[in-house]
Design a protein around this nucleic acid. Structure first.
Length: 930
RNA sequence: GCGAGGGUAGGUAAGCCAGGCCAAAACCGGCGGACUUAAGAUCCGUUCUCGCAGGAGUCCGUGGGUUCGAAUCCCACCCCUCGCACCA
């Protein structure tokens, strides 16, 4: 019997496998599964490993069920990250170089060529492919592509033509975070500071002022009715400017921001804050109000000029009060316009006084402000002095007044961050910019959303719980800017200045897999939209490619599509996974919609989040070298169900390795030993095996890889343990063991393909275990009575042992007293009773039993208690099979004596004269130790 | 802050939806023993507390509640993970 040497097994089989899993349409039923493809900008770690190994286990499982399984792979290389990496490497950025040279161990000569982004992705794509093959992934590599292949670009162009035709791609304006020094929009991950900053929409309310307008930015336009004054900072020099052709007064900062936000701003002069202070400004909805001085007014917030609503804004209230305490502007009175529960006439005043705030600089001012704003938004109603808005709830009035302002009073919208200091990685300040000419995928379209909801409802989603998250995401999605100026990718077909954004070019590639190996062979120039129309829809009359070629390609598409399952980690739910549903709905026909999704948990390393940038990773290649592919696979699919987070810990992985070794040794022994005569216990083993097959199959059908392993590995091992305990002196070489080995190797083949492949051959089978028939449970081999008898024995031995353990005497002999038949009668009656409370009455209704009087009543009580503690199926079996306990125990006498190491006597309880024998119950003999 | 999911014995984790089979599966780890020159592997026992007869007590994030009965149902609180976008 050879030692288990996984390295050798890997070398023996790895390179012969890739062609084996090339899948072509045939008469069998298909099973098509795919995974979110990787962006190969760095080395694979064990977290990536699980992403591909779990689907592979599922693929191998279904393949053995005689499904035609397609499992393809490609590489996503579009976008900007590798461009940044290549630049940083070219510059010699030490951190990046360290990551690639030391952690990912890229050879120096290769690293030297990493100044070209394509070199990076091509290098790592090859590396991924190599490592995936080491892992034994049953991928059809003929279909491999990368997302900048010209043929793929043609497919994307076709897709976008249809999206545009369906009016799902529209040109729009959109506020984005923008870094003027990079001259590019920036994502949150590009920010050094202010990552959580949100873009807020202010209304600029225009006040008449000496032939010009003073814009005041507000989030609460409805408070215009309560404006008593404006605030200007006397220390600030404001600008006079023509904004969109109108004369405005505003801060320098505000002028710059508005320019970024698509307004024309032409500076014509300056005016000091001091000059403005003391003058009057007016708005039709609040009349003429004075401009008051305020040092707290920040020119870098809003327009740099503020409207004041002292009744409802604590800052305004306290600033006004402070001025008035100095005897200034005493004629200004707060104007209350909102009634809100829990507050008096002037909520700002109440809140400040309740909090005991006496000074504007009190740090609790922000908190009090939030409190008042929140309370008024939730419960406030506008008062009678608010014109048309009177008695409206604040919530509604806010929107109505904002709309009114924009329509009738010349207001403009201004965007601002909710936090100051938003800084780009380049160190430059980030502003809100309105992008025009930008193309958007209109995910906000309610009709489109409704279609996706419908699809989510029809799909199988594993685990069920994430369905809610998908629905939430669909509701929450707004329009998505789908074009960029920089990065790798496909040009927008109708506007060549734009590149299709990388998330937006990878929503329908699952369909491309079905035809990729054919399409690759066609000159991209010939791949007109008509060609794809013909392949996907079967319409039109393309002439650039021979018709029989197209018919074959279309046939293949129709065979595989739609996909059965897509596998991905849960962090992609809120974008990619939901996007692809939108795109399928828009472009693919009704019967080509995604059928199912399986969502994975995340990976941890020793309890901490895996992160390449922090160096907290185990590279998959290293893990394969150290433990071998089967161990890595077994650990990754066995330590947690796919949707749970898993934690890679080396000491646990070593455990998995030992387990496979045990499996190897047991099966090798089984093969080596000469067949000998079967024993009765063989029937039990084979009967148990049927349950294991059934449970493993169900688990894998439900993607429960961990559960499957519990059954297929530990379950079978536990059965074997009992089997050997019952037959310690006989070598395990029976026909039953051979049968078990053959089944066992196949049950574990999806998880440990290398080990199983070798054992399968050693068992004398031709062909790969990957295509061997999956075991099917045979009901005829299930022998419930034997299983029950063994359970009875096991429980009895356990009971004896637990008693021996407690008593502190050395046992000399064990007497077992089997319960009399009439107690079995009691057991049946009680077990069958619908209402347990009436069970005792039922027992006493039996004449024979009643004649036993108190004895019967006591037994009934004991039996009731006992039944209560047993699993219901077991109770059912006990009743159904009416086990001859005497015979079972007698037959196992030798076994019992070996177990307890003293003579065992098996006796009838009835008439034994032993007091303790009275406690004998069916399925629970009385035990007396001498 | 908002949205989704989750907290079970030393660790991983099943059970929870359908309350009583639950002192709570399974695996790992720990401890003791057998085998061995030894280590490893393997096997046996043990791993909340108490108990010289198969039993009792306490326990499933915290605090309440419902129920004859709660890890499981309800309420509140605390803590953790993921997502919150123009980016893979």
């Amino acid at each position: 019997m050879a030692e288990w040497d996984i390295q050798k097994l890997e070398e023996k089989y790895r390179d012969t496998w890739p062609e084996m899993f090339e899948a072509d349409p045939d008469e069998r039923e298909k099973f098509y599964l795919n995974v979110a493809f990787p962006y190969p900008s760095g080395a694979m770690h064990v977290g990536h490993g699980r992403t591909y190994i779990v689907p592979d286990v599922i693929a191998r499982f279904w393949r053995m069920q005689d499904k035609n399984v397609l499992f393809p792979m490609a590489f996503h290389v579009t976008g900007t990250p590798v461009i940044g990496i290549s630049r940083r490497i070219a510059k010699g950025d030490p951190e990046t170089v360290r990551l690639y040279r030391d952690l990912y161990r890229v050879p120096e000569d290769v690293l030297a060529r990493f100044d070209d982004p394509m070199t990076i992705v091509e290098y790592f794509a090859r590396d991924y492919e190599r490592i995936m093959q080491r892992c034994g992934l049953s991928i059809d590599w003929r279909r491999r592509f990368i997302t900048v292949n010209p043929q793929y670009s043609k497919y994307i162009e076709w897709q976008y033509a249809h999206l545009k035709e369906g009016e799902h791609v529209v040109k729009g304006v959109h506020p984005v975070k923008y870094c003027p020094s990079c001259d590019n929009p920036v994502g949150d991950h590009d920010l050094m500071e202010g990552e959580k900053a949100e873009i807020m929409k202010f209304t600029l309310i225009l006040f008449e002022w000496q032939g010009a307008k003073i814009p005041c930015a507000t989030l609460r336009p409805e408070t215009i009715y309560g404006v008593t004054n404006l605030w200007a900072n006397p220390e600030v020099t404001y600008l006079r400017a023509n904004v969109d052709g109108e004369k405005w007064i505003l801060s320098r900062e505000a002028a710059y921001k508005l320019e970024m936000q698509d307004h024309t701003v032409e500076v014509t002069g300056e005016v000091s804050g001091a000059e403005i202070v003391g003058s009057k400004a007016s708005h039709p909805l609040c009349g003429e109000v004075p401009v008051l001085p305020a040092a707290f007014v920040d020119p870098d917030v809003g327009s740099g000029l503020v409207m004041s609503v002292p009744a409802h804004a604590p800052f305004d209230y306290i600033a006004l009060r402070d001025l008035q305490e100095q005897g200034k502007f005493t004629e200004v009175e707060p104007v209350a316009i909102i009634k809100s529960e829990g507050y008096g006439e002037i909520p700002a005043k109440d809140a400040i006084e309740r909090a005991g705030i006496t000074h504007q600089l009190d740090p609790r001012m922000d908190e009090v402000t939030r409190e008042v704003y929140g309370a008024e938004l939730l419960h406030g109603t506008l008062l009678a002095n608010c014109g048309d808005q009177a008695s409206k709830p604040v919530k509604q009035a806010r929107d109505d007044v904002a709309a009114l302002m924009l329509e009738d009073y010349g207001s403009k919208v201004m965007f601002e961050f909710d936090t100051q200091n938003v800084v780009c990685r380049c160190g430059g300040r980030v502003y809100v910019k309105i992008l025009h000419d930008q193309w958007f995928l209109q995910y906000s379209d309610p009709i489109w959303k409704a279609q996706v909801h419908e699809q989510i409802n029809e799909m199988e989603i594993v685990p069920q719980e994430v369905r809610a998250e998908f629905d939430r995401t669909v509701d929450w999605l707004k329009d998505w800017a789908c074009t960029r100026r920089v990065g790798l990718g496909t040009k927008l077909p109708w506007d060549q200045n734009w590149i299709i954004e990388p998330l937006s070019d990878s929503t329908l590639y699952m369909a491309f897999y079905t035809i990729a190996h054919h399409i690759k062979k066609i000159d991209p120039e010939k791949l007109t939209p008509e060609v794809f129309d013909y392949i996907i829809y079967g319409t039109g009359n393309p002439t650039t490619v021979p018709r029989e070629t197209l018919d074959a390609i279309r046939a293949e598409f129709l065979y595989w599509y739609p996909y059965n399952y897509r596998f991905s980690a849960k962090d992609l739910i809120s974008n990619h996974l939901t996007f692809q549903l939108f795109h399928h709905r828009a472009v693919m026909e009704e019967d080509k919609q995604p059928q199912g999704m399986v969502i994975f948990g995340m990976g941890l390393l020793n309890g901490a989040k895996m992160s390449s940038s922090k160096g907290n990773v185990v590279l998959l290649d290293d893990a394969l070298n150290e433990f071998g592919p089967d161990t890595v696979r077994m650990f990754l699919v066995g330590s947690a169900e796919p949707w749970q987070d898993f934690d890679w810990r080396n000491e646990l992985v070593i455990g998995a390795k030992k387990q496979i070794e045990r499996f190897w040794n047991t099966v090798s022994e089984g093969i080596a030993v000469e067949e000998n005569d079967g024993r009765e216990i063989d029937g039990w083993l084979i009967s148990r095996l049927q349950h294991r097959i059934e449970h493993t199959t169900t688990a894998l059908q439900n993607f429960q890889t961990r559960q499957a392993l519990q059954e297929a590995f530990f379950g079978i091992e536990a059965d074997l343990k009992w089997y050997r305990r019952r037959l310690p002196t006989i070598a395990p070489g029976s026909a039953a063991i051979k049968e078990l080995c053959s089944v066992w190797v196949r049950l574990l083949a999806p998880v440990v393909p290398y080990t199983s492949e070798e054992l399968w051959h050693q068992l004398g089978h031709e062909g790969s275990v990957a295509f061997a028939p999956w075991p099917v449970a045979d009901a005829a081999k299930i022998d419930e009575k034997t299983e029950l008898a063994e359970e009875f024995l096991a429980r009895t031995v356990e009971d004896i042992e637990s008693i021996v353990r407690i008593i502190q005497m050395e046992p000399r002999a064990v007497n077992l007293y089997v319960a009399p038949a009439w107690k079995r009668q009691v057991f049946s009656i009680i077990a069958g009773a619908a209402d347990p409370k009436k069970a005792i009455k039922l027992v006493m209704a039996d004449e024979d039993l009643r004649s036993r009087g108190k004895e019967a009543a006591d037994a009934a009580k004991q039996v009731t208690k006992f039944i209560h503690r047993l699993p219901p199926e077991l109770v059912e079996n006990v009743t159904a099979h009416d086990l001859d306990e005497m015979a079972v125990l007698t037959a196992a006498q030798e076994f019992l004596e070996r177990e307890v190491k003293v003579p065992v006597r098996i006796l009838e309880a009835e008439g034994s004269g032993e007091v303790k024998a009275d406690t004998a119950l069916p399925f629970k003999p009385a035990i007396v130790i001498e």
